[in-house]
Write a protein that binds this DNA or RNA. Structure first.
Lengths: 245, 245
DNA sequence: CGTAGTGTTGAGATCGATCAAGCGCTGTGG
DNA sequence: CCACAGCGCTTGATCGATCTCAACACTACG
């Protein structure tokens, strides 16, 4: 009965087998999916923190505004991601989330997480692990932004994107579609759109990447990795310690 | 029987009441405390990820090295912090951890977390929440580093420190002891020791802070907050959704 | 007294920001 | 069909914040 599979489950099955009871639980908790046209807000900073969302289709962007009007993009979310983890600890959201292109989300209420924690330890472990992985990637990002030059930061951005896309779609290979413009890219890695443009030029001149309209083609992934000392956090997750049931 | 109280419990009781069964569980899982003289390594990048640690006494520093020999400090840990959250997802550690001054840790094995998840949902929720809070603070840090100037970053660093110290010791007030030198400070907020020194001068010249040997005295917290658009994430945690047992 | 660690200060170099202009593409409306 | 506006990207010129390098002061410690 694939129609009744939770979309959280279908995304999370990439990582670990969940017992049927966990799947059934999630299917019960999950609300109807929601469509988001490009540009539509999911929520705004300060909104009550009531839902987590699993991205089913499309790219979403979590960002915060700064006092001077500039913007910092916290995270670009792809299909399979969970939106809202960081704000679990709080009553209010700490970021804005908006759809970059047309997308679909599966919301489920934060308030039902208690049932998950009580009844589905294996699923709980998976959620904790996913959160922890996001956290480590953040550490990597901070490291890149605080200590690396503009082209290296862009290399990091590209590698992070492609490796995440490869999880959900292993056929991704070295070419992917990227709807993120240069201004937004800069807001992710702490640069202006001008520096992003120049950094692209550098990476292209090196023969490491190529751009074709909104597509990115990676020609020398090894060189990109070395440029930003990249560690792929998406490959090896430790699920051995998970509860058995 | 305070001697048998888990030190994790005693630290976590700041946030939420835990059922006696959770406390007993933790006391059982916890290993003997370990003493760390200043400078002693707790673990090194690439070590098998076998323990989490609760800081009981002292300051610890989690950092990663960069290819060019420079260093990025991921986090300064204080009493009450849990060391190792970010690496939960992985088999190997992704940072080095070292004692800044003399300290004491309570290790407990990652492999027993499955028992926690199966038997102590309320405690599990607390751990998830603490991880999530760390994550949000990281987002704030990244925002500061990627978009703010040197004095604002230092202001952020100071406010983060003092607000964390105030959790464990509410009597902290506006003065605290800080064993972190300027080089390490720079490694936290993405500056050189030289820029840190100059930024201190700026904040002092503004009359916002004062230094007295290794102590920091805050004279105008409001101004500091405004300088770096600071949000105190340590005040309001949402524990309402926690499982009741 | 010598050494190591830490912080301060100055001078010059550098990287990315800022400002400004222009190009190509797209969608819209006359 | 054309004019125009809007958006994203590129490029050049200049500016400025921070880095780099270097020298020096101070302290602790053997």
């Amino acid at each position: 009965m694939p129609d009744h599979d939770s979309c959280l489950v279908s995304k999370l099955s990439h990582y670990v087998d969940l017992p049927a009871s966990d799947k059934a639980l999630l299917a019960r908790l999950e609300e109807a999916t929601e469509e988001y046209p490009a540009g539509r807000k999911v929520y705004t900073t300060g909104d009550p923190m009531e839902h987590l969302y699993v991205v089913q289709v499309g790219w979403f962007c979590a960002y915060t505004g700064l006092a001077d009007g500039s913007r910092h993009v916290v995270r670009i979310h792809h299909p399979g991601d969970v939106i809202g983890f960081p704000d679990l600890a709080f009553r209010q959201t700490s970021v804005d989330v908006v759809a970059i292109d047309h997308g679909r989300l599966c919301p489920f209420e934060k308030s039902v997480l208690d049932v998950v924690l009580e009844e589905a330890p294996r699923l709980t472990a998976l959620l904790m692990t996913l959160m922890s992985r996001e956290y480590v990637i953040f550490i990597d990002t901070l490291r890149a932004i605080s200590r690396m030059n503009a082209p290296a930061r862009l290399a990091f951005f590209i590698l992070d994107l492609v490796n995440r896309l490869r999880i959900v779609n292993p056929r991704t290979g070295d070419r992917f579609y990227c709807p993120v413009n240069q201004t937004m890219t800069g807001d992710v890695i702490g640069l202006t759109n001008v520096s992003v443009s120049r950094s692209w030029k550098v990476l292209e001149a090196n023969g490491w990447v190529e751009r074709d309209d909104n597509a990115v083609i990676i020609h020398d992934e090894k060189a990109l990795r070395e440029a930003c000392d990249y560690a792929d956090r998406y490959k090896e997750m430790d699920v051995d310690w998970f509860p058995k049931r």
